[in-house]
Write a protein that binds this DNA or RNA. Structure first.
Lengths: 341, 341
DNA sequence: CCCTCTCCTTGGAACGCTCCAAAATAACGG
DNA sequence: CCGTTATTTTGGAGCGTTCCAAGGAGAGGG
C-alpha cells in the first residue's frame, strides 16, 4: 500500500516478458505460450496486480458502462425496474453508473451530462418525467432506452412500456363487471402514464353512459397525494362506490383516507390501483391492481439496449407489454348491488 | 455524429490556441485571459465538445467515483440508505457506480473487484451479509464505509450503524410496559443485526424472569420468512400475546399470518417490528417499530467517506446512531391485562 | 543447410487528458 | 528604451492500456 499500485509494466518485468505479452495473456489470448502465460499469471498474483479499467477504456474506447437515470425512489416501481435492468447489465459483464435527478431538471441535466462524459455506451432512463427534447438530445450521443414513457420516439431511442390504455380499460371493465357506476378517479398530474389513465377513465365512463358520475380528484402519484385527494373526495358530497387510483402508491393513500372516514374496503367502497408493486401483495394491503411486469420491463430494456449497441437490425422501436388484472381484496360488488342478489 | 467526437485538440485548433490552454480554460483556471477564454468557450460550444472523463481520470489519477455495493432490493431499507448516500455523493460532484452481489458471494466478489479496477476512490457497503475478511481486504485498497454491520472493524474501515442492542431493548421494554409476558420472537437467521436482536430478546426475557416463555421461530428477514415462521408459531401451541419480529418486512408477514388465524392486531396479539421502513407508516399497516434513521445513515456514511478520503483526522471509526421507538397501531396491552383494568 | 511457415513475442504509437517547466508576451518603473 | 516582473501560453512528457506492424525462433521440406 506504501508504493504505487503495480501496473502491467511491473508484471512484465517480474515475469521477464514484454508489457504487450502481459496484456495479451491477461486477456486470455490463445497466442501466448503456456510457459509465458503461467509466468505472467504468477507474477500478477504475486504483485496483487489489478488492471486499470480507466486506462483500458481509454485505449480501446469502450467503457463497458451503462448509465441509468432513475427517478426518486419513493415509488418502488423504479427500484424494481432498476433491479431488472441492473441484473442484465451485470450478467453481460458491464457496469452500472447510477444517477438521479432528484426532481430538479437542472440537476438532472448535469448528471446526464456527466454520464456522457464518462463515455457510457448506453443509457436507460427510468422515470416518468423526462422531456422528449432532452431524451432526443441524449439519444443522439448514445443508444437510449426509455422505460414507462410511451410518447417519446426518435432516432436512437427505444422504449419499453406497458399498454396503459389497455390496462386502464381493464381496470374500468373490472369495476363495471362488479356492478359499479359511481366510480371516481384519483389522477396523477401531468406525467404521461397518469394522463393516459385519466383519459381512459373518462372515455370508459362516457362510453358506459356514466358521464354524470365522472369525478376526478387530482393526486400526484404519491401516497400523500392519494391520501389528500381521497380525503377531499370523501368529504365532498356523495361517496362513490369505487375509486380507481392512478397508481398503487396513491391507492394505498386512498385506502388510508377511507379508513379514516370509517369506510371499510371493499364492503363500503372498492379501490383499484395500478402498477403491481410488491407491497400491494402484502396481506395487510392486498390491493387489487393492474399489474405491470416491472422487473421484466427492466430486463427487457437492458436487453434491447445491448442488441442496439451490437448494431442488430431490429424491427420496431418500442416494446409494449400487456398489463394484467390482479384481483385481490380491495374490490367487490357495490353494496346496493349485493343486496339485490 | 458521423465523424469522431471532438477532442480538446479540435477545440484548440478552432480557437487558435494550444490544447493546454483549452484544458486550463475549461477547468476554470484564473490564469487565462478573457479573450482566450471566450474564444475557447465559443469553439467548444460550436463543436459540441464534451470532455472525456476517462482520459481525465487516467491523467490526474482521480476517478471521482464512489462504488456502492447494495444487497438485494426486496428489503426497502437498502434502497433507502442508497438514496441517502447517493444524494451526498452527487452533491459533492462525484459519481456512483452501483453493484450488487445478487446473494451469490462469488458474483459479489467479482463485482467488487470490478469496482476496484475502475479506480473508485471510496466504497460504501450496504448489506447485511459481508464477511469481515472480504471487507478488510477491500479496505486495504480503498477507504470503505460499512452500513449496518457493527462487528466489522479494521484499518481503513468505518462503519455507520444504529445501536441494535439499545433498540431491541427498547422494543422489549415497550412490550413489558404494556404488560406482555408471553412474548415470542421471529428471528432473522445468522446475519449480524438479527443475531443481536435475538440475543437481546433472550436476555431481556430472562432478566424479567420470563425464561419459561422464551419462544423463538426462525425467519430470514423476508416477508415470506416472517409469514412462514409465524404460521408455525401460531399453529403450535399456546399463542403468545405479543410477537417481536427481527425486522419490519418480516413483521408484516407476521401480520398476515395473524389475520389468517383470525387474530386481530393489536386486540388479540401485538406485533412489533424493527427498522422503520416507510411502508410501515402506511395507514393500512401502521406498524409499531423501532425506527432507524435510514436515509440519514446513508448520508452519514457518504460524508464520513469523503472526510476519510480527504485524509481528515477523525476520532473513532464507528458512528452509532440511536434508534427510536415508534408506537403505532400494532401494539397494545394484552387482553387479560385490559380486562383487569 | 537454406528457405518458408507457423507460432510467439516485441517495441512503439495511439487514446484524450493533466501537469510542469519553460517560452512568449505584456506591463511596469526608472 | 531597457531590465524586471507579472501574466499568458505552450510543447512535451506522462497516466496504464490496447493495437499493430514487424521481428525472432523453431519446425518442416527440399
Amino acid at each position: 500500500m506504501a508504493d504505487k499500485k503495480p501496473t502491467i509494466h511491473d508484471v512484465a518485468a517480474r515475469a521477464g516478458v514484454s508489457k504487450s505479452l502481459v496484456s495479451l495473456a491477461l486477456r486470455g489470448s490463445s497466442k501466448v505460450s503456456d510457459a509465458s502465460r503461467e509466468a505472467i499469471e504468477r507474477a500478477a498474483a504475486e504483485l496483487g496486480y489489478r488492471p486499470n479499467a480507466t486506462a483500458r477504456s481509454l485505449a480501446d474506447r469502450k467503457s463497458r458502462t451503462i448509465g441509468i437515470n432513475m427517478a426518486e425512489i419513493d415509488n418502488p416501481i423504479f427500484p424494481q425496474m432498476l433491479s431488472g435492468a441492473h441484473a442484465v447489465i451485470r450478467e453481460r459483464g458491464y457496469n452500472t453508473m447510477l444517477v438521479s435527478g432528484e426532481r430538479d431538471p437542472l440537476v438532472e441535466f448535469g448528471e446526464l451530462a456527466k454520464l456522457l462524459e464518462f463515455q457510457i455506451e448506453g443509457l436507460i432512463l427510468i422515470s416518468h418525467r423526462m422531456s422528449a427534447t432532452t431524451v432526443r438530445s441524449l439519444a443522439s450521443d448514445v443508444p437510449t432506452v426509455v422505460l414507462t414513457l410511451q410518447g417519446i420516439t426518435g432516432p436512437g431511442i427505444d422504449s419499453v412500456t406497458s399498454d396503459d390504455e389497455a390496462g386502464a380499460r381493464m381496470a374500468m371493465r373490472h369495476l363495471f363487471d362488479l356492478g359499479h357506476e359511481r366510480i371516481a378517479h384519483i389522477s396523477g398530474g401531468s406525467l404521461e402514464p397518469a394522463v393516459v389513465r385519466e383519459r381512459i377513465y373518462r372515455e370508459e365512463m362516457s362510453a358506459a353512459g356514466l358521464e354524470a358520475h365522472i369525478s376526478v380528484y387530482e393526486g400526484d402519484l404519491t401516497n400523500e397525494g392519494g391520501l389528500r385527494a381521497a380525503r377531499e373526495l370523501l368529504s365532498n358530497g356523495p361517496t362513490p362506490t369505487a375509486i380507481f387510483a392512478s397508481n398503487d402508491i396513491s391507492a394505498i393513500g386512498v385506502m388510508s383516507a377511507c379508513s379514516e372516514h370509517g369506510l371499510s374496503v371493499p364492503e363500503d367502497i372498492s379501490i383499484l390501483g395500478y402498477d403491481g408493486i410488491s407491497i400491494g401483495e402484502l396481506h395487510a394491503i392486498n390491493l387489487t391492481t393492474i399489474s405491470q411486469p416491472l422487473t421484466a420491463m427492466g430486463e427487457l430494456a437492458a436487453e434491447r439496449l445491448f442488441d442496439r449497441m451490437a448494431g442488430k437490425r431490429l424491427q420496431g422501436r418500442s416494446i409494449v407489454l400487456e398489463p394484467e388484472l390482479m384481483v385481490r381484496g380491495t374490490t367487490a360488488a357495490p353494496k346496493a348491488q349485493r343486496q339485490r342478489n
